[in-house]
Simulated assay, not measured.
Amino acid sequence: MTSELLGRALVEEATKKSGLIWVRGTAGTQALWHVWHDGAVHLVGDGPGEQPLPGLADGGEARVTVRSKDKGGRLVAWSARVTELAPGSDAWRVAAGDLKTKRLNAPDGEAVTERWARECRLLRLDPVSVTTEFPAESQAAPPPPTPAVTRDAVPAGLPKLLLRRLGRRKK
C-alpha cells in the first residue's frame, strides 16, 4: 500500500512539473502538452491548430512517460485509462479553463474554449499503474525519412581565409 501511494505521489508531482509528456496510444507515441487537474492528465487536441491525439480513444488505454524537468530523462511511466469529456459538462468546463491558461499563442485568444467545444476533443488520462524501472535501451524512435540533407563539407581554403581576416583585425 505504501509503495502504491508513493508511486501515485511521484506520478502527480512529476507530471505537474513537466510541461511535456510522452503518450503512447494505439497509433504510436506523441509528445503532448497537458495540464494536471483533479488527479489526472487533461489533453486537448485533434482539431485545427491543435496537437494530434493519435490512437487515444474513449475507454481505451495509454502509456504515459514523464521526463525529469531538470535533466530531461525518463522519471516515471504509468498506464492510464482514457476518458473523453463531453463538451459543456462541468468536468469539461473546469478542465478546459485550466488548459486555456497553459495554451500558448491561441489564434482566437479568449474564445479558444468555444472552438475546442466545437472542433476538438478533451481527454482525461487517469493513472492506473506506475513504474520507475525502465529498459536499458533508449526506446528512441529513428528519425523519419526526409529529403533534407546536411550542408556540404567546409571548403579547404575557408579556415585560412578566416584566420587571415582575424590576423588583420588584431593589428
Results as ranks from 00 to 15, higher is better:
residue 23 V to Y: 00
residue 33 W to P: 09
residue 19 G to S: 13
residue 42 H to D: 10
residue 58 D to R: 07
residue 18 S to D: 05
residue 34 H to W: 01
residue 57 A to G: 07
residue 49 G to P: 11
residue 55 G to R: 04
residue 28 G to R: 06
residue 23 V to L: 00
residue 44 V to P: 11
residue 41 V to T: 11
residue 49 G to W: 02
residue 58 D to S: 15
residue 52 P to C: 13
residue 51 Q to N: 07
residue 55 G to K: 12
residue 53 L to A: 10
residue 53 L to H: 11
residue 30 Q to H: 07
residue 57 A to W: 04
residue 56 L to K: 00
residue 23 V to W: 00
residue 29 T to F: 02
residue 34 H to V: 11
residue 27 A to P: 08
residue 16 K to F: 08
residue 35 V to S: 14
residue 50 E to S: 14
residue 37 H to A: 10
residue 20 L to K: 03
residue 48 P to F: 04
residue 31 A to Y: 09
residue 45 G to A: 10
residue 20 L to Y: 02
residue 46 D to I: 11
residue 21 I to R: 01
residue 36 W to C: 12
residue 22 W to I: 04
residue 37 H to K: 10
residue 58 D to T: 13
residue 30 Q to R: 01
residue 58 D to V: 08
residue 24 R to V: 05
residue 39 G to Q: 01
residue 29 T to K: 00
residue 16 K to P: 03
residue 26 T to A: 15
residue 27 A to G: 12
residue 37 H to T: 08
residue 31 A to D: 05
residue 56 L to S: 07
residue 33 W to K: 11
residue 39 G to N: 07
residue 37 H to I: 07
residue 41 V to A: 12
residue 21 I to L: 01
residue 35 V to R: 06
residue 22 W to G: 12
residue 52 P to G: 11
residue 26 T to P: 09
residue 29 T to A: 13
residue 17 K to L: 10
residue 53 L to G: 12
residue 18 S to H: 09
residue 51 Q to R: 09
residue 49 G to M: 02
residue 19 G to R: 08
residue 55 G to Q: 03
residue 51 Q to M: 06
residue 35 V to K: 09
residue 29 T to Y: 01
residue 23 V to I: 12
residue 51 Q to S: 15
residue 54 P to C: 05
residue 30 Q to C: 06
residue 45 G to K: 02
residue 35 V to E: 04
residue 56 L to F: 02
residue 21 I to S: 05
residue 39 G to I: 05
residue 34 H to S: 14
residue 44 V to S: 14
residue 35 V to Y: 14
residue 29 T to Q: 00
residue 47 G to E: 01
residue 42 H to V: 15
residue 51 Q to W: 02
residue 39 G to M: 02
residue 23 V to P: 06
residue 30 Q to L: 09
residue 41 V to H: 04
residue 30 Q to V: 06
residue 24 R to Q: 08
residue 21 I to E: 00
residue 22 W to A: 09
residue 56 L to Y: 01
residue 18 S to I: 06
residue 38 D to G: 09
residue 57 A to R: 11
residue 39 G to P: 12
residue 34 H to Y: 08
residue 17 K to E: 14
residue 49 G to S: 11
residue 56 L to W: 00
residue 42 H to L: 06
residue 57 A to P: 05
residue 31 A to H: 05
residue 52 P to I: 12
residue 28 G to L: 04
residue 21 I to P: 04
residue 23 V to D: 04
residue 43 L to S: 13
residue 51 Q to T: 13
residue 41 V to Q: 03
residue 49 G to Q: 03
residue 24 R to D: 02
residue 57 A to F: 15
residue 44 V to Q: 03
residue 43 L to T: 10
residue 40 A to L: 04
residue 35 V to C: 15
residue 34 H to K: 01
residue 20 L to G: 06
residue 48 P to V: 05
residue 40 A to K: 00
residue 45 G to N: 08
residue 47 G to S: 14
residue 48 P to N: 12
residue 28 G to C: 05
residue 49 G to R: 00
residue 32 L to Q: 03
residue 35 V to P: 08
residue 33 W to S: 14
residue 56 L to D: 03
residue 35 V to L: 02
residue 16 K to G: 07
residue 36 W to R: 10
residue 28 G to H: 05
residue 30 Q to N: 10
residue 27 A to Q: 13
residue 25 G to V: 10
residue 55 G to A: 09
residue 58 D to N: 15
residue 25 G to I: 03
residue 25 G to L: 00
residue 51 Q to E: 00
residue 48 P to T: 13
residue 57 A to E: 15
residue 27 A to R: 14
